[in-house]
Design a protein around this nucleic acid. Structure first.
Lengths: 222, 222
DNA sequence: GTACTTAGTGTTCATTTTACACTTAGTATA
DNA sequence: TATACTAAGTGTAAAATGAACACTAAGTAC
């Protein structure tokens, strides 16, 4: 190592999260209003700096726990953004993660108290701080892609659900209408679901069987 | 930012590369023998530290240029590894990339001079420094996956090639035999190839048409 | 009890994928 | 120069998959 040390970047390392949920049939991402400069009062992805003796995954999990009270959500590393100019203060590289949370699992009262946290439709995002719009768009792309070759949407579903709710979830993510009969055939053929035995008696119509995922784990379909 | 600054990690940021080629029908990765501690004289992935004012992509490209004389090779970010214990010296997080190089494009004379560089079969790897075996295995996995839903193998092919050579390349990457007629039908149906008009007259048999990729760019198949 | 709503179910047709074997065009050599 | 050898190049039928499509079932509301 005979390169001059001064040539090495001494970046801070941040972890930023694209946390998704589906509320009211709209795919939304969690945004935090910044309290400090730079980008004071602008919306940004939840994030923070990596701590000593903390792995990247742990940092992502820690930030997630700070903002939600949900356990066992889907979380995966997305991409690392390291443009030298991405933070006006100093050199910061950020390891982006994306997470999925079922809307029902979020404690609504808590998120109502805070005004610096919002869930914004990914189709109508405000101006975002840093390169966070790029990160978020990349996360949406990844989510869409994975929805089409895995069961990743389990991360957005409540513990039990009607098949029609699952279909709607898929339609929201991949952004196209699906055929009811084909969808049911295909989903049941994956063997990833099981009936809970319970029925959802809600509304003036035939009750629906409730299903759950056998395993809360991503599975790739062939 | 009222967290104590001492709590923040001040990691060095490295960029490590899994550089693949196929030589003698074997998928190989470039390894460098370390000259210094830690892991002195052990094999490791080529890599280096991120410089000031250098993006992650640029750093990867720079390291690639140091080790090869090839331009325009396929390069993509793979994953970021940040276990606090992954480097015994200090906290180092590494952004891993993977690259593809056609064997023919490598300048053989140069790589013969150096003894601290080798191309090792990914099926018979020596002990590797740090967590580089994990990184390399992850890269192989990614390459396999992408080969099945994109034209990524273009990055391993010479400028022009016989269809049978392309088929062999696919077989090496995805590690299974393919049907000649079906393979040809499917490849030509993608419209990603074009005939060069030339023929490969080599060997005691019918000459083969030579093809090339219309674009040196990854394309995802449906 | 009639209207309304969503749940739940099969079949046909089109498309895609798979399996499979012989002819072609050159070189080597007897 | 005829024969053997090698890899190149080609089509079809069967099977599996995917896409399109409409009615009955089981509850609630009025």
């Amino acid at each position: 190592m005979n390169t001059k040390y001064k040539d090495y970047a001494q970046p801070a390392v941040a972890v930023d999260l694209a946390i998704f949920t589906v509320d009211n049939n709209i795919l939304k991402a969690m945004l935090i209003q910044r309290a400090e400069e730079p980008f004071r009062r602008q919306w940004a992805l939840p994030g923070g700096f990596l701590l000593r003796n903390e792995s990247l995954d742990s940092a992502a999990q820690r930030i997630l726990n700070q903002k939600t009270n949900v356990k066992d959500m889907y979380l995966e590393q997305l991409y690392t953004f390291g443009d030298p100019q991405r933070d006006p203060r100093a050199r910061v590289i950020t390891v982006a993660y994306f997470a999925l949370i079922p809307w029902k699992h979020l404690s609504q009262p808590e998120s109502k108290k805070v005004t610096d946290l919002t869930w914004a439709s990914v189709h109508a995002l405000p101006k975002l701080a840093f390169d966070h719009k790029e990160i978020l768009n990349y996360a949406v792309k990844r989510l869409r892609a994975k929805a089409s070759y895995s069961n990743i949407v389990y991360g957005l579903m409540p513990k039990q659900f009607r098949l029609s709710e699952l279909q709607t979830m898929y339609e929201i993510i991949i952004n196209e209408k699906l055929d009811k009969r084909n969808f049911r055939k295909q989903m049941l053929a994956t063997e990833l679901l099981e009936e809970t035995g319970k029925k959802d008696i809600n509304g003036a119509h035939r009750p629906a069987r409730l299903y759950r995922f056998k395993k809360n784990k991503i599975v790739f379909l062939d």
